[in-house]
């Protein structure tokens, strides 16, 4: 099946090392731009607390992994895989994301 890309916003709407929430259909996505310019898309729902807040966490790194911390209880997630680095077995969905001519696009199937 062909990947369906949805245009979300211009890249400059994303502040470095800060997230923004996007609504794609009924899915809430957290878009995160890291310091080196890469963009990640993860589910906005905190899998442990259930609230749609991940985009408001602090972005950083743990070892080599780019990370975001839940703003509610500070569990840290690997932005590349969605894996929770503090609670084994917990992870959140990640979505394909690309920058197309200065515009951020996400694929949510």
């Amino acid at each position: 099946m062909k990947t369906q890309w949805t245009l979300v916003c211009p890249l400059e709407r994303l502040q470095p090392e800060r997230g923004a929430a996007a609504l794609i259909g009924s899915i809430q996505v957290a878009l995160i731009r890291t310091y080196d310019g890469a963009v990640f898309a993860i589910d906005n729902r905190d899998p442990l607390a259930g609230a749609q807040v991940m985009s408001r966490g602090i972005v950083g790194s743990r070892g080599d992994a780019p990370t975001i911390a839940s703003p509610l209880h500070k569990q840290v997630y690997d932005l590349r895989t969605g894996e929770c680095l503090d609670v084994p077995g917990v992870s959140l969905p990640t979505y394909p994301v690309r920058c197309n001519g200065g515009l951020v696009e996400v694929a949510v199937s």
Binding site: Q15, R18, A49, A51, V53, I58
Partner: peptide, 21 residues
Amino acid sequence: GEQAALQDTNDHFLANIQRDG
């Protein structure tokens, strides 16, 4: 500037986050 990226969500939104976001 970059200070925005340092703040916890409470300071970032100048309000106190609650359990439902």
